[in-house]
Amino acid sequence: MSKHQHNAPLPDPVLRVKALESLLIEKGLVDPAALDLLIDTYENQVGPRNGARVVARAWTDPSYRSRLLRDATAAIAEMGFEGRQGEDMVVVENTERVHNLVVCTLCSCYPWPVLGLPPVWYKAAPYRARAVREPRKVLAEFGVDLVDGVEVRVWDSTAELRYLVLPRRPDGTERLSEQELAELVTRDSMIGAGVVPGSKSTDT
């Protein structure tokens, strides 16, 4: 809304944000301490380790897994993760026959309480444009090579449901504790843009 003309370079965001913040503080519209807390929450407190704990519990506790697939919001809240941009959750499970991939083609919808804020690539044009049109090529770029016949299910988060992928548990991890399993779970595997190292369905 600044005096930007078409075809002119976009105004410098650094200065714009500084100007805006100082005006909003001066007008009493924002509390500076609240700003710092908001940043700290999503930079340091909330992130994909939360989702990894949900996944590890689902791998080790069959009744939790079935609650998670039936009512993800409640099951995730059991672990203490809830709230903004995760108010209504859906968990989709990867199997031998199905690989799920989550995208938001219209903006950047992402389950904050379990994954934190989305990575830059998730919000950028190439992923948003391509994930629905050529998911197998996108997955191959991420190093996920699906065997023929595996169904790819792409979930476009166009409404207020937020999706988390329950990835496949790697073989040979029977003796690992829930905490050790959680350490194996990657952020990308919970978006579907990756698999947990060592797990099948992606073996070529």
Binding site: L106, A124, A129, R133
Partner: peptide, 21 residues
């Protein structure tokens, strides 16, 4: 913003070391 299905954006640019901000 309605990007689904567009072509020509090229590869997905990922940085595994990326910070939150």
């Amino acid at each position: 913003h309605d990007l689904g299905g567009m072509d020509g954006f090229g590869p997905i640019d990922r940085n595994p070391e990326e910070a939150v901000f």
